[in-house]
């Protein structure tokens, strides 16, 4: 089990690593400063491509995603903070552009779902266990079985 878990972790990490590595379409999109480029990629990975909707702008080849990548890089270069860049994006496209949306009434169900799923799983397992224990028949013989056993042993002896 432990081995499987670490294998799963390794797999997940390698997939996400590939996702970041192949982010931009062409090298000339990238910033010359590697630290700034890294920051831009991290920010871009949190922004939804509004054309493809299930990809980040770093993963997408849509023209709008390319434009937004350029905006992110320009703002990183001018020294804006991550928060300022996120704000610039949500001002224009709403919180929908954030791949991890902030906790609000509309997103509450989304955020509490993992906890809800875990709790209901534990509840179901507990319920199952309790009923299985109750249903186990006792090892003691009933009155009828005892009588039948006595009869059978008598038949055998005679």
């Amino acid at each position: 089990m432990k081995k499987h878990l670490s294998l799963l972790c390794a797999l997940t990490f390698s997939i996400s690593a590939v996702g970041v590595a192949f982010a931009v379409d062409s090298p000339d999109e990238m910033l010359p400063n590697p630290a700034q480029e890294q920051r831009a990629e991290t920010i871009g990975a949190q922004l939804r491509c509004l054309v493809c909707q299930n990809e980040s702008i770093e993963d997408s080849s849509a023209p709008l995603a390319r434009d937004l990548r350029r905006v992110v890089r320009e703002q990183v270069e001018t020294g804006k903070t991550d928060q300022q860049i996120m704000m610039w994006m949500t001002d224009r496209y709403g919180t929908f552009i954030r791949l991890s949306p902030p906790l609000s009434i509309t997103t509450a169900l989304l955020w509490i779902m993992p906890g809800l799923a875990l709790l209901s799983g534990i509840g179901l397992a507990w319920w199952q266990f309790r009923h299985r224990n109750n249903a186990t028949p006792s090892n003691d013989l009933t009155e009828d079985e005892r009588a039948r056993l006595a009869m059978l042993t008598r038949e055998n002896q005679s």
């Binding site: 509004l50 054309v51 023209p63 709008l64 434009d67 937004l68 905006v71 224009r92 496209y93 709403g94």
Partner: peptide, 13 residues
Amino acid sequence: QNGRAAIDWGVTG
């Protein structure tokens, strides 16, 4: 032409 104004309007396509 470069689509920048459209981004300020929140145009997605």
